[in-house]
C-alpha cells in the first residue's frame, strides 16, 4: 500500500526498476513490496513540490517515447528500451538529466537500501570489522 504513488505509477516504477536493476525481476512479492515501500517513504519525506515534480517526470518518462517510437516507454523492450533510457540520461536538457538521476537514485535506494540485499552483493559488515583484517580469516 503506497501513499504517494498510484497503482499504475507503482507498476511503471517497477518496470523501470527492473530495467535499471535487473535483479529486481528476481525479487518475490515481499521483496518488491519492500522496494516500493522504501521509495514511497523517501517520497513522503520530500517536500510536496519535489514530490509533484517527480510524479510529473515519471509521466514524461512514460509518454515521451511515443513521439519517437510510437508507444509508451513500458511497451519498449531490449535495445529500444535502453536507447530511450540512455536518451534521458544524456538529454541535452540538464533538468531531464537531473530528473533521471533522481529516478535512478530512488530505485537504487529501493533495491540496495534493503538490509536483506547484503548477502547477495557480498556486503556483510560487522561492528568489530578489525577482526576481519589481515591475519584473520573471514568465515
Amino acid at each position: 500500500m503506497t501513499t504517494v504513488l498510484s497503482e499504475s505509477q507503482v507498476r511503471f516504477l517497477l518496470f523501470l526498476a527492473e530495467a535499471i536493476v535487473p535483479e529486481v525481476g528476481d525479487l518475490d512479492d515481499t521483496g518488491r513490496r519492500s522496494c516500493v515501500a522504501i521509495i514511497d517513504q523517501a517520497l513522503q519525506d520530500r517536500p510536496p513540490p519535489l514530490r509533484r515534480k517527480f510524479i510529473f517526470f515519471l509521466s514524461a518518462l512514460r509518454w515521451t517515447p511515443v513521439f519517437r517510437h510510437g508507444v509508451p516507454l513500458d511497451s519498449l523492450r531490449g535495445e529500444a528500451l535502453n536507447a530511450a533510457l540512455d536518451w534521458f540520461q544524456d538529454c541535452p536538457l540538464p533538468l531531464v538529466r537531473k530528473g533521471f538521476w533522481g529516478l535512478k537514485t530512488l530505485i537504487f535506494m529501493g533495491y540496495y537500501g534493503r538490509p536483506e540485499v547484503g548477502e547477495a552483493i557480498h556486503y556483510t559488515p560487522s561492528f568489530s570489522g578489525n577482526d576481519f583484517l589481515e591475519g584473520n580469516c573471514r568465515d
Partner: peptide, 14 residues
C-alpha cells in the same frame, strides 16, 4: 555503503 555506491555510479542495467 551499497545504496550510496550505487547512486554515484553513472549508468544502470547489467
Amino acid at each position: 555503503f551499497p545504496f550510496t555506491t550505487a547512486k554515484y555510479l553513472v549508468g544502470y542495467g547489467p
